[in-house]
Design a protein around this nucleic acid. Structure first.
Lengths: 234, 234
DNA sequence: GTCTATACGCTGATAGAC
DNA sequence: GTCTATCAGCGTATAGAC
């Protein structure tokens, strides 16, 4: 098959352009939300024309969904791998670490805050994605906590799924207030206080008490050293 | 001054129209966000033309700010009066009551979630309003808690402002997850669990322990019986 | 694959009659 | 005060040359 020589499906150049567009679109959606920002602007920032962009992603909605799918892959590569390795209450330390990373990544946090809230509208194209995302994140945190119950570190009878939902809520809620007023809201300190109190409440009193999530924790948290943009809303 | 007979500044008819437009705009902004919804649609739903609407509110931004100011008045009439009457840990019962009311007011909650998140964008017209709102709400809750510290009900040394910020975060974060997936998130039960645990952590152990925020609380919470749309995000 | 040119709807806002 | 008529501008999306 000599024709296969110029096979163009996984074209190297094409993949590069596609990825550059995805990254640019993600940043644009972050700053202004999906509905408010224009394809022309994204195309210009990515260094091609609007028509050129629409060659790769036929509609704006297709672009959004592609961006979310792309974020999914990045996230699963990072959080999806590091989070489940922490079991029991150490998951709180891991999440505190995530907050410490997020406080340096304002744009990423704003992305999730703006897009997730926008997506609660009826019929929003990202709604299913965010619902699935929260379902998955809650389950991951709940699983980590449940293994703590199983090992006896956490009190028996703890509703792990409820606690997981609450922890996600605290992270998201703090992000909103922090974005609105960074000077008035010390997101890291606030989450640390919350995590400490939660740790104390969940810990099984019938056992010795070792590591609390106090930020002085120096164990390996499974992060890549540079911290390449992990998940924002937990 | 016979000319004063047809004084038209606080025209009764004009006030009615104005209020109808505000209510309609509030509902529209709720469903779709500020940027996504059009003046033409709001005008039609309020029963007048777009030009007629712009006679009362010269620009779309003016309309948004008027809506927010109008909500402010409603809110101050209700929460602003009832919240400060609860001091110490009873403020948690009051906030639980608020969550119970909000779970019946999906549209109001969606309003606050969509608009507040949209407002974190740089230069958004509602940004200052939401920042000021959170500053005020945090202070109100913190004041209530502080009087609990003063009376000895709450542990000495409690950082009331930090706790107030956290409580607001939990309410907002739960609202987001609940709006995305009402069947999977029991907002009232989750906030009740959180409030109970917080109550236990803050309560001064040197004193007897009376009322916990358990929803069986039948004391008067200061609400009007019908519950006419109080604040959503705390 | 990428471009220029363009179609065409909808946006917020204005002018002026009634 | 409210309307109809109209504006310029920007939005997404398409057609067709290269």
């Amino acid at each position: 098959m000599p024709a296969a020589i110029h096979e163009s499906r996984p074209n190297r150049r094409g993949v590069e352009v596609r990825e550059r567009v995805l990254r640019t679109a993600w940043e644009a959606f972050s700053r202004e939300g999906f509905r408010a920002c224009s394809l022309a602007r994204i195309a210009a920032d990515a260094g091609l024309s609007q028509a050129g962009l629409l060659h790769h992603f036929p509609t704006k909605e297709d672009l959004l969904l592609a961006v979310l799918r792309w974020r999914d892959e990045l996230e699963l590569d990072q959080v999806g791998r590091t989070l489940p390795t922490h079991t029991g209450l150490s998951v709180l330390s891991r999440l505190l670490r995530l907050v410490e990373i997020n406080v340096e990544l304002t744009d990423v946090v704003r992305s999730f805050t703006v897009l997730s809230a926008e997506s609660v509208s009826e019929g929003h194209p990202a709604r299913d994605w965010f619902r699935a995302r929260y379902t998955r994140v809650r389950a991951a945190v709940a699983d980590a906590l449940q293994s703590g119950v199983d090992s006896g570190e956490i009190r028996a009878g703890t509703d792990c799924h409820a606690v997981a939902t609450e922890v996600c809520a605290v992270m998201d809620g703090l992000q909103l207030q922090w974005l609105l007023d960074p000077g008035a809201v010390d997101m890291v300190a606030l989450f640390r206080d919350y995590a400490r109190r939660l740790d104390a409440a969940l810990r099984n009193p019938a056992r010795e008490a070792p590591d609390t999530p106090d930020g002085q924790d120096t164990r390996d948290t499974g992060d890549t050293p540079g911290g390449t943009a992990p998940s924002a809303a937990p």
